[in-house]
Design a protein around this nucleic acid. Structure first.
Lengths: 359, 359
DNA sequence: TTGTATGCGTTATCAC
DNA sequence: GTGATAACGCATACAA
């Protein structure tokens, strides 16, 4: 935010804070209509209304009609808290995630949110915050939680597992000994395929890698796979070619450092698309041509990948499937059904132009 | 999803569905610890525990300690439903939005989520779904709702207003007669500045516009402003230059149509960045140079905008401010404090290279 | 098929 | 300061 805007924002806040216009406390806030009122209106007992609402037990079509009419007339909406208390379930899922501000996370969240709705659950989201985490736990507030990546420390995971609270890890496997169910993708196969392609199709032999954050399991697996793939092709591992690329910024910097380093390279594999995009940016600004001089491959297939110039060749995880499966499995676990301890979903190499193909 | 993957997904689902490993129903699921147990453990009454938990009324530091210790030992977490029922508040905000899958929405959601956390509220998100909307209403389930753009029909808005349920519109103004509080941005000023810049600095006189979706208020305002700005500069409005550009795809198509149409133009203003990006894409693929042949300007300043080649000149709304203010105002409204009926926040023209500047 | 009564876990209003 | 007790609004045996 530029200074001027910031000043403005303070002014706005201050103004509104000190706004003296008294308090409208319960001006038009009539007490919300309860079930009892609906019952009276329909000439039945509250219990009957409850049955109609939940499709429990049989009741004559006529009373059913009357009740529904009353509900409509009065604009009745059940009090979620009371219902939860009585039923012992909240009807909502928690989703713990480190951030929603990235392309990848937002599209994943989209999938999870619609899957949750489809399964009849509300979605409560919490950004890596131990406090909101706390509230979600203890068989309260939420019927179960989806935990993305490293959004939650191992200590908390341990507690969840101990309490038997329904939880499912996504894009992260269970810490040893905990046996929390999880859904991960086949990072190894993805990177292996990518590098096989670079070596076999494009004859690349000096392949650099931009590594992800330390705590990130996917990042670690992909880096491992990178080294493994080099080995399989009999290529030496050159530490100068393996640099930090957390996001586009760092990737840009690393790529420029790579160029300055004189350590010749003819391909860059980013641990994620954002990193690869940063790399392409840097290469272009330094006068290198992609893919003529350097091939670039990413991982994630975020939205912009296909619109880059050249379009980014990248490894696509089955985001849609991961999200739907995650919600489904969590719901199943909430219902007490035993589920697979771990699902490892296959990825797919999307060949576009940044590797050198003409597709 | 490619066919092979789809088949696989079915296989996975089927497998898990038919998994015969019985039911773990309440295997390690011990009944959650309640307040009463904490009370016994600490040698006090439940009422005292409640006081300690909520900092209500005075109590000796010693009992306070004992209670806190008991809570820690037993890993007690308050039951949210019971608490809500007793207090008449849920401690969560609802956020109704059409989608989270776009750059713009995800960064806005990020702001809203962290603001909510900061204000001590959980965030319940609902993707344009009348059913989840329904649950959020009626003074239940959430203490108030944030409604983004056209995420909710006017009928529902009317009901909300009638019930006096705390609600705040964001990126959309209140329908006439409803007086729901709202926070909007100054679309007019943004487009006007952009077009002034194109005309005055770059001498552009044939300016095309890519219009947004019909129901979108921002889109409508921006288009109006486009026509207004042309008028002010004495430029004719040519309907052939005003085409659909909902997203990148349509924008691409429209731009190509524009070129085929022989209706000469030297600038394109997109109603949003995604549209402008699509336009740039099309221009490039058709052999036009940006900005040499055609200037391009966007609206939103989404993340990728600055990384395009050339970097996109665009109008930036104060997303951070809008989000924080929205949460703050909603909370204030929930607390019964009268708030401004409408805030119209200023935008800023971010001049980069796609307009022709060398910045 | 429908109504009555009780409990869900917490907070709040009282007495003590 | 602290402890009993009555709501909070709904679901669900159980009775009718």
């Amino acid at each position: 935010m530029p200074p001027r805007m910031q000043a403005l924002s303070f002014a706005l806040f201050a103004h509104m804070k000190s706004s003296p216009q008294a308090v409208t406390m319960s001006s038009g806030v009539r007490p919300s209509v309860r079930m009892e009122e609906v019952a009276r209106h329909a000439g039945v007992s509250p219990a009957t209304v409850s049955r109609v609402l939940n499709d429990r037990g049989k009741c004559s079509a006529k009373t059913r009609e009357r009740v529904l009419a009353a509900i409509r007339d009065l604009g009745y909406v059940a009090n979620a808290a009371a219902r939860s208390l009585a039923q012992g379930r909240t009807g909502s899922l928690g989703f713990l995630l480190p951030t929603v501000g990235t392309d990848f996370m937002s599209s994943f969240l989209q999938v999870v949110a619609s899957a949750a709705t489809q399964e009849g659950y509300d979605l409560l989201i919490a950004l890596r915050s131990e406090s909101s985490l706390h509230r979600m736990l203890g068989r309260h507030n939420t019927d179960g939680v989806l935990i993305f990546g490293a959004a939650m420390g191992e200590a908390s995971l341990r507690r969840i597992a101990a309490e038997g609270f329904p939880a499912l890890l996504v894009y992260r496997s269970s810490p040893p000994g905990l046996s929390l169910p999880s859904i991960v993708i086949d990072n190894e196969a993805g990177v292996r395929e990518a590098i096989d392609h670079l070596v076999q199709v494009h004859g690349r032999h000096r392949i650099a890698f931009l590594r992800g954050p330390a705590g990130n399991e996917d990042a670690a697996r992909r880096e491992e796979a990178y080294r493994g793939a080099l080995l399989r092709h009999g290529l030496p591992f050159d530490p100068r070619l393996c640099r930090g690329g957390l996001g586009a910024e760092e990737a840009r910097a690393s790529t420029i450092a790579l160029l300055r380093d004189q350590a010749a390279f003819d391909a860059v594999v980013g641990w994620c698309d954002a990193a690869s995009i940063g790399a392409m940016d840097a290469l272009r600004s330094e006068g290198r041509r992609v893919p003529a001089d350097v091939s670039v491959v990413g991982f994630d297939d975020i939205g912009p990948a296909r619109h880059l110039d050249p379009a980014l060749t990248t490894v696509r995880p089955p985001t849609e499937l991961v999200g739907r499966l995650a919600v489904l499995e969590l719901v199943r676990r909430i219902q007490g059904v035993a589920t697979e301890p771990q699902a490892r979903l296959p990825v797919e190499l999307i060949v576009r132009r940044s590797c050198g193909c003409s597709g």
